[in-house]
């Protein structure tokens, strides 16, 4: 079937969601409709506009794109500041997650100008005019910019992200690591589980039900290289699977998007090498 218009629904179900025009293949209830343009601030010299995805599944209405405008001279420096300003002064129904406002909690991940990033560390100087603000790409929307993380967190739980050790803990002090052993966790421990990477991974879009995705595989790597963990073999057994691990095709969207500057793509390659190491 030829896709001729973005209003058309594809009848094909088998080749699920090739990259086709916006709205195609989306269920009628997910189609984006025109939204509200909120009034612009008066007397502002530096106006910044935002096109924000709005959706409340419980309302039974389709998603829409609302346009907000703020006065940069009366707003903090980051996108999160602007969103809070909009919520406080223009439209209190706008919904998003945030907590730390300094890039360490991972709550405010969203798709900003087409790239997944944390709103609290995205400077307003770096965004387009108007800027588009969408929720993360492959999570069901709970409301507006808040995605449902139930599945990705269950995937996290499935890799047993805790110490699995048979040696009893030493009496009187912690399990010790040498500075070199601790260094192996660098590039892994900084992950804040914001899921910018997983939401940007095409393999996770097509096969997220089975593929663990970059965030969780980076966490799996973190336990594989921990000198105190004694379940390395079992962990590798559990990961060696055409879907759980090998669905990663090194597209590297994950590495391009990670707001903490980590390299999940490389860590996944290291897991594959570890599996090869024990085979030959």
């Amino acid at each position: 079937m030829l896709i001729k218009s973005s209003k058309q629904v594809s009848r094909w179900r088998t080749p699920k969601r090739f990259p086709v025009s916006r709205n195609s293949g989306a269920s009628p209830a997910s189609r984006i409709e025109p939204g509200v343009s909120w009034p612009e601030p008066e007397g502002a010299t530096r106006v910044q506009r935002f096109k924000v995805y709005r959706h409340d599944p419980e309302s039974g209405k389709n998603p829409r794109i609302d346009t907000y405008a703020i006065d940069r001279d009366k707003c903090g420096p980051m996108l999160l500041d602007a969103l809070i300003k909009i919520k406080n002064e223009i439209d209190p129904t706008l919904t998003f997650r945030r907590s730390c406002r300094e890039g360490v909690c991972g709550s405010c991940a969203m798709n900003i100008d087409g790239t997944n990033w944390l709103a609290c560390i995205r400077s307003l100087d770096e965004i387009s005019e108007p800027s588009t603000v969408y929720p993360l790409n492959n999570m069901d929307v709970i409301k507006d910019l808040v995605g449902d993380q139930t599945h990705v967190l269950a995937q996290y739980q499935s890799i047993t992200p805790w110490l699995r050790s048979k040696t009893p803990a030493p009496a009187g002090h912690e399990r010790l690591q040498s500075p070199e052993e601790r260094k192996r966790l660098d590039g892994d421990y900084e992950c804040i589980l914001c899921f910018c990477c997983t939401a940007g991974c095409p393999s996770h879009w097509w096969n997220g039900d089975r593929f663990l995705g970059p965030a969780i595989l980076l966490q799996a790597h973190r336990w594989l290289v921990d000198s105190r963990d004694e379940a390395t073999g079992e962990r590798l057994d559990e990961l060696e699977d055409p879907f759980k691990l090998y669905r990663c095709h090194t597209i590297l969207n994950c590495t391009r998007t990670c707001p903490k500057g980590l390299n999940p793509g490389k860590k996944i390659a290291e897991i594959k090498l570890m599996i090869q190491q024990r085979r030959s």
Partner: peptide, 21 residues
């Protein structure tokens, strides 16, 4: 069913390394 039940799915096939290699 729980989210974990669905995330685990049918578990690991314990293969894929040969294909990759």
């Amino acid at each position: 069913s729980s989210a974990l039940y669905r995330a685990i799915g049918l578990g690991s096939a314990k293969s894929g390394a040969h294909h990759w290699w």
